[in-house]
């Protein structure tokens, strides 16, 4: 197996372990966030945010906080350094909040706002990235670069996972209340605006982390699919979060192994696994539903 070979070979393992570790942290983030993202129907906003990240990448490049391509491939890793992370996260957050703000004023314009911000950010990113002449490949941003994740980035992803889970834990009651019953939440002292702001912020910074693995195009898939899978399989709160974590973990691990074995890009591999899990979950649900109507239940 190439996977075992890559991860145990003393020469190759430093190339691969940080990516694998970052992937595991990502599974934790996705497990917590995705349930709320699915229930609150924020996946399209998430899609907008992740595409906005490409604009952030361009901005980071033109500001000179992006690594440049040199003879040694490793230094060319497009995602490293805290400054770059901050620029991209800031860009994503601004885009997310802009959409949130527009949607808050007029829900019918949300859809258009996301569409516009999505393409505008891609365009700006494309222009800036070209202008910055970093020599970075587009594809690495679009589909992820698991093999070039520097150890510092893996550490940062874990710190991020800790922060996201801490915030979710601290706001769990108000977040759940809001997710279940937005209209009634002000009467119970829960501000819908604050909750949406918190969730969009978490989504924005998590998207930047997800980009390392899956790239701009597929980042949201990781932040949506685990929750969507879990919600197909259970209606129990703790079971849903456990299933969400299990499927995120399975998606990331199997995806990474597939990408090693078959030489696929890691992002598409992870998304293919998660999508297959989703289809299986749908089938399980359909079969259960049929048993429910014909059987004893």
């Amino acid at each position: 197996m190439k996977s075992i070979e890559y991860l145990s070979d003393p020469l190759l393992s430093p190339l691969f372990w940080p990516g694998v570790l970052a992937g595991l942290a990502m599974a934790l983030i996705a497990a917590g966030l995705s349930v709320f993202v699915v229930v609150k129907r924020l996946s399209f906003i998430g899609q907008g945010i992740s595409h906005a990240a490409f604009g952030g990448v361009g901005l980071a490049a033109i500001l000179g906080v992006t690594a440049r391509v040199t003879q040694a491939g490793l230094e060319a890793a497009p995602f490293h350094g805290i400054p770059q992370f901050l620029v991209i996260a800031g860009f994503c957050l601004a885009a997310g909040l802009l959409v949130g703000l527009i949607a808050d004023k007029d829900a019918t314009r949300e859809d258009a706002a996301i569409g516009i911000i999505l393409v505008a950010s891609m365009a700006v990113g494309g222009i800036l990235l070209r202008k910055a002449k970093t020599g970075l490949e587009w594809e690495s941003f679009l589909f992820g670069t698991l093999y070039q994740v520097p150890p510092a980035d893996a550490v940062m992803t874990w710190v991020l996972a800790g922060a996201v889970l801490l915030v979710l834990w601290a706001t769990r009651r108000s977040m759940t209340f809001w997710a279940f019953d937005e209209t009634a939440s002000p009467a119970f002292g829960v501000s819908p605006r604050a909750m949406k702001l918190i969730l969009l912020t978490l989504l924005s910074i998590s998207t930047v982390a997800a980009m390392k693995l899956a790239g701009v195009v597929l980042a949201t898939a990781i932040l949506v699919l685990p929750g969507a899978i879990a919600l197909q399989l259970s209606t129990r709160l703790y079971a849903v979060f456990a299933l969400s974590f299990a499927s995120a973990l399975l998606g990331v691990l199997v995806g990474i192994v597939l990408s090693f074995e078959l030489d696929w890009s890691p992002g598409p591999a992870i998304v293919v696994v998660l999508t297959s899990l989703f289809v299986m979950a749908k089938v399980v649900r359909a079969v259960r539903g049929r048993q429910g109507t014909h059987g004893t239940a």
């Binding site: 609150k40 601290a170 759940t176 019953d181 002292g189 919600l231 709160l237």
Partner: peptide, 24 residues
């Protein structure tokens, strides 16, 4: 107006009403 796809039991909904102002 409630989001009925959210995985909560009736009791959990009522518990949220009682404890939503609790410290984390």
């Amino acid at each position: 107006d409630a989001e009925l796809s959210f995985p909560l039991s009736g009791r959990q909904v009522v518990q949220l009403g009682a404890g939503v102002a609790n410290k984390p």
